[in-house]
């Protein structure tokens, strides 16, 4: 395994373990843990659409704990990462909600 792949693998293992550990410590709910694990597999192993990552970054930069943020979070948790239609539909919804936030 080359150095780059080795680093990515280490990052993947560490991140996955961290997510489950945080759930253990009660800092993440089961749904949040599942979402983050699925996102990790989707981005690193399935090399899925990186648009989802840029949308998430945009959301984090605008996050203020408002009601819209709660709706965005609920929308994210409902994403089925095995269904491309579900990803597309929910990302579109989140982008619209982010526009509403301004």
């Amino acid at each position: 395994m080359d150095l780059y792949k080795e680093k990515i693998k280490k990052l993947y293992d560490e991140t996955a373990s961290l997510i489950v550990r945080l759930s253990f410590e009660g800092k993440l709910s089961s749904e949040e843990m599942r979402f983050l694990l699925n996102l990790l597999d989707f981005v690193i192993l399935k090399r899925g659409n990186f648009e989802i990552v840029s949308t998430l970054k945009k959301w984090i930069s605008k996050y203020d704990g408002s009601e819209t943020d709660e709706i965005i979070k609920a929308t994210l948790l409902a994403v089925d990462f095995n269904n491309s239609d579900s990803i597309r539909f929910n990302m579109e919804l989140i982008r619209e909600l982010l526009e509403v936030k301004g």
Binding site: Y12, V20, R21, S23, F24, E25, S30, L37, L40
Partner: peptide, 21 residues
């Protein structure tokens, strides 16, 4: 994958403490 294994172990209640992870 490692993630799928963690999810499965979690849902089956096989992870009982941080040491298991």
């Amino acid at each position: 994958t490692y993630v799928e294994m963690l999810k499965e172990a979690h849902s089956l209640g096989l992870l009982t403490n941080p040491q298991d992870i």
